[in-house]
């Protein structure tokens, strides 16, 4: 059980320093997240909210 974890966690095959590492995958993931956020916001605000009946105008 414990040995399984030790093996799994010692799989480092290379050391990457700050200058050798560009988080390209992170940038891609976060760009996808950004697009989802933006699209969902527009949908929620303009369709779900402004498209809903009875708006408080005063």
């Amino acid at each position: 059980m414990q040995d399984g974890r030790d093996m799994e966690e010692e799989q480092t095959v290379r050391e990457l320093s700050h200058d050798e590492f560009d988080p390209n995958g992170t940038l891609a993931l976060i760009a996808v997240y950004f697009v989802i956020l933006l699209a969902m916001w527009v949908f929620m605000y303009f369709v779900e909210f402004l498209g809903n009946e009875l708006t408080v105008v005063g």
Binding site: Q11, T12, V13, R14, E15, L16, F21, P23, G25, T26
Partner: peptide, 11 residues
Amino acid sequence: VASMEHGARQR
């Protein structure tokens, strides 16, 4: 996420 990616790439 970048820290996790760093781990994944070292692995």
